[in-house]
Structures are given as C-alpha cells and as structure tokens.
C-alpha cells in the first residue's frame, strides 16, 4: 500500500484522537515503525492490520473509522491541497461524481505509484447514482466506506444535499448509493482555480 494512505490514517488518528492513541495503535501493530513515510510503499497487509489495530484501540467498527477518515481528508485544513485537487474534478457535485471514474488515473498523474481502487459511476436517474468501489484491487476491504466519507464531505464542499448508503458486495467491493436531494442546497466552499496551496 502506498505510504500516502497509511500516512493519511496516521494523520487522522493524530488530529482526531491524539498522539497517545496513535502510539497505542502502533504498539499493538508491533512493526517497529513509529510513523509512516508518505512517499514510500508498504506491504498491503500492513494497512489491513493497521485498521484492525485501530478498531480495537478505538473500540469502533472499521467501517465507521474509514468513513471518518474519508470525511477528515476533505474537511481538515491540513489536507486543503487534497480538497483542491478533488475540486478540479468538476464545477458541480454531479460533475465531480462523473470525474470519479478518472480518479485513480488522476492520482497516478500526481504520484505515479499511488494505486487507488477502480470506481464506476452509474447514473440511474439525474438524482440517483450508484458508485462501485473496487477495494479488492488494492487489497483493502472497506475502502468504499472511506470513499463514502469523502463524498459526504465533498457534497458539503459543493453545497449539495445528498443521502449516501454503502452496500457491501461479494468479493470485497462496495457500492455506494447516492441520492441527490438538492444540488444547490447551500453555497458550499469557494474554489478558486488560481489559489494554489503552498
């Protein structure tokens, strides 16, 4: 698994629960690693174990934690650059949904060895979409929950009102049902093309 993913989990735990929780988790993991390097690659299995250890330390289901991580990545100020990169996907939330098919490719353009699971968006009606997340491609069951958390935060960012629900499928992939209640519910957050984050 790419270090960026492990590092995101680390930052989430740090910023949300504090350093002690992180230390506890890493002790439970017992790898001799204290923190993850975002630009190195780690064994896939390590991330799976990391999530299990974290679920134990926090005493919460993995799915809930993953969803929180997804939301954190878009809404926390220290990941502003990620929010911006996602906003490049489209002018409206629906545009953005349609850009998700390209997300793994966009990620690879930025970091050539970052592999994200493939995603397929189906537009059932103009207000109802299904997004399949192929978590099995990166050996991380439940990745779809993180995508759902991310979608929730992105909908907020665009000012759209949505209802989201994850359905687990056979063979480690998830389908997210997206009901768009109102495309312009709130004003959302600004996105200025030229306001690059340093």
């Amino acid at each position: 698994m790419h270090g960026l993913i492990n590092r995101s989990i680390e930052r989430f735990v740090h910023d949300t629960y504090g350093d002690n929780t992180w230390q506890d988790t890493m002790r439970r993991l017992d790898t001799g690693i204290a923190e993850f390097e975002p630009m190195l690659t780690y064994e896939d299995e390590l991330t799976v174990r990391l999530m299990k250890a974290l679920a134990h330390v926090l005493d919460r289901p993995e799915a809930d934690i993953l969803e929180d991580i997804g939301t954190y990545l878009v809404s926390h100020p220290s990941f502003e650059s990620l929010r911006r990169l996602l906003r490049f996907g489209g002018v409206t939330f629906v545009d953005f949904l349609h850009s998700l098919d390209d997300l793994p490719e966009r990620a690879r353009l930025a970091v050539s060895d970052l592999h994200l699971p493939g995603m397929e968006l189906r537009e059932i009606t103009s207000e109802y979409f299904c997004l399949t997340v192929h978590s099995e491609q990166i050996g991380m069951p439940g990745f779809g929950y993180a995508v759902m958390g991310l979608l929730r935060a992105m909908a907020d960012d665009y000012g759209a009102l949505v209802m989201l629900e994850v359905q687990e499928n056979q063979g480690w992939h998830e389908t997210i049902q997206i009901k768009l209640l109102e495309a312009a519910f709130a004003s959302g957050r600004d996105f200025d093309l030229g306001a690059r984050v340093g």
Binding site: S81, L85, L109
Partner: peptide
C-alpha cells in the same frame, strides 16, 4: 492546473 498543483504537492 490540476497537474501543476498535484505535482507540486507530490
């Protein structure tokens, strides 16, 4: 623009 920003971050 996306690429420039993504590459700078990376």
């Amino acid at each position: 623009l996306y690429l420039v920003e993504a590459k700078s971050a990376a």
